[in-house]
Amino acid sequence: MTELALELIRVEYAYRRDVALRGVSLQVRPGEVVAVTGPSGCGKSTLLHCAAGILRAQAGTVHLVGQNLAELPEADRTRLRRTQAGVVLQFGQLVPDLSLTDNVALPLLLEGHEREAARRAALGWLERVGVADDAAATPSELSGGQNQRAAVARALVTGPAIVFADEPTGSLDTHAGEQIMELLLSSARVGGSALVIVTHDNLVAAYADREVRLRDGVIQHEVSLS
């Protein structure tokens, strides 16, 4: 059996006053595209943050490429996240003072790659996502769409098994949003990465192989779209 890219088993998470996840189980196969949808406050972003190891599930388990996040020492968990999980947020995830090249090279540098090799790989990705001409610019000098392209490059530069995208088109107009979605899908396909997209936008959800709809912290329904 092929190892799952992601497996959540009865994951629970509560903020100080609100219960966000009430025992959610989910499996994502390698290369699969899953849309997590649902009304605001249904727990979809919390689900993504628990799955990506940004938040720690308070109950239940999260397996990323077969490894139980809760059982890994902190350093190993960080390393696993950095190499196997790419993250694309709505905006603001690039380091403001760094050029696009350095932003995209960052995950490789943190992994101990040699500086020139990391920059070359970053440039290759910036070219693939169509912002190579702005490689030397900092995020504040560029549009939201251009920054999202760089964010996609940064999420994929390590060749992760899975990419988590939280409302990746949320700050863009329809046309730029479509371009980012197509880029995200084609880039994930190149490396065989699975993709989990949290979205409230039906037109974005329609790109997925499967829709998982949450309501009040539980899965309301799950349907195949392919």
């Binding site: 479509e178 039906n202 959800a205 790109y207 829709e211 329904h221 349907v223 195949s224 779209l225």
Partner: peptide, 16 residues
């Protein structure tokens, strides 16, 4: 409603 939802999403996917 859930079935209709997936049918609609599938159609959008085809159009795209």
């Amino acid at each position: 409603l859930a079935r209709q939802r997936s049918s609609h999403l599938r159609r959008i996917r085809e159009l795209k």
